[in-house]
């Protein structure tokens, strides 16, 4: 369960300096909101397993 284990505050604290990003307090707060939404989306996406053999579509063609 991503939503239970994912810690957006911890991610921002760790990742911002690694990425060379300096966040204001407002920006940090909103980034946390958006990471939480991303975790909700990932939860939906990853809740059903995909086959190991499933090819990704990094170069998508319709």
């Amino acid at each position: 369960m991503i939503a239970k284990t994912f810690d957006p505050e911890g991610v921002v604290n760790a990742m911002a300096p690694l990425l060379g990003l300096t966040l204001t307090a407002d920006s940090r707060a909103q980034t946390i909101v958006h990471l939480r939404i991303a975790a909700e989306q990932a939860e939906k996406l990853l809740s059903v397993p995909l086959d190991d053999q499933q090819e990704p579509a990094p170069v998508f063609t319709a």
Binding site: V11, V12, M15, A16, L19, L21, L23, S27, Q30, T31, I32, V33, H34, L35, A38, A42, L45, L46, L50, Q54, E55, P56, A57, P58, F60
Partner: peptide
């Protein structure tokens, strides 16, 4: 702030998104 959050999304999530695609 949405873009900054995007820079912090785990790579495994987007790779799975492309597999699902």
């Amino acid at each position: 702030d949405r873009l900054i959050a995007g820079a912090m999304v785990p790579g495994a999530w987007s790779a799975q998104a492309q597999k699902f695609r």
